[in-house]
């Protein structure tokens, strides 16, 4: 083993790292592209029930969505084209109101006392992308397996 390692020079090591970097380049390009063009949705859930599922591109003007439950709890979600913010709530810790504006996919505002969650999601083609890659590759490659 030592003899094998002696064959490799430092520039070899450097080269190998560059090659590993190159091989992850498609991921970088793909996800940069997807976050730039992917459709985003605002999903508002209360106690795991989806109340609203709004496409961010459909929102043209600022709009307030009140969420009220029977026992007097209320949250007001303010939705506009440049972000979603919890503008008012009567929960005791006010963490949701202080979380500020969210816009990027994956960001969330959580109001734990009222079990209200606001989430920005990207179009969920990212979930089954793994299957797609491999199956498309097999379908292309498998027919004419080299």
């Amino acid at each position: 083993m030592k003899r094998f390692l002696e064959l490799a020079t430092w520039s070899d090591m450097l080269l190998l790292f560059v090659l590993i970097g190159i091989s992850f380049l498609p991921f970088v390009i793909f996800y940069a592209q997807q976050s730039a063009t992917g459709e985003r949705y605002v999903v508002i859930t209360e106690d795991r029930q989806v109340l609203h599922d709004i496409r961010l591109a459909d929102i043209s003007e600022q709009r307030q969505i009140p969420i009220e439950s029977e026992d007097g709890q209320y949250n007001v979600v303010e939705v506009s084209a440049d972000g979603v913010v919890m503008s008012d709530a009567n929960c005791h810790d006010q963490i949701c109101v202080r979380s500020g504006k969210i816009l990027a996919p994956g960001e969330t505002i959580v109001c734990l006392p009222h079990k209200v969650i606001i989430e920005i999601t990207a179009e969920d083609n990212a979930d089954n992308v793994d299957v797609d890659i491999i199956s498309s590759f097999i379908s292309v490659k498998g027919l004419y397996y080299e």
């Binding site: 090659l19 590993i20 190159i22 091989s23 992850f24 380049l25 498609p26 991921f27 390009i29 793909f30 992308v129 797609d132 890659i133 491999i134 498309s136 590759f137 379908s139 292309v140």
Partner: peptide, 16 residues
């Protein structure tokens, strides 16, 4: 051939 860029995402597996 498959007309999709997502095939390239298979590169890390193959190239490692």
């Amino acid at each position: 051939v498959a007309n999709t860029f997502s095939v390239m995402l298979y590169l890390p597996v193959l190239s490692l």
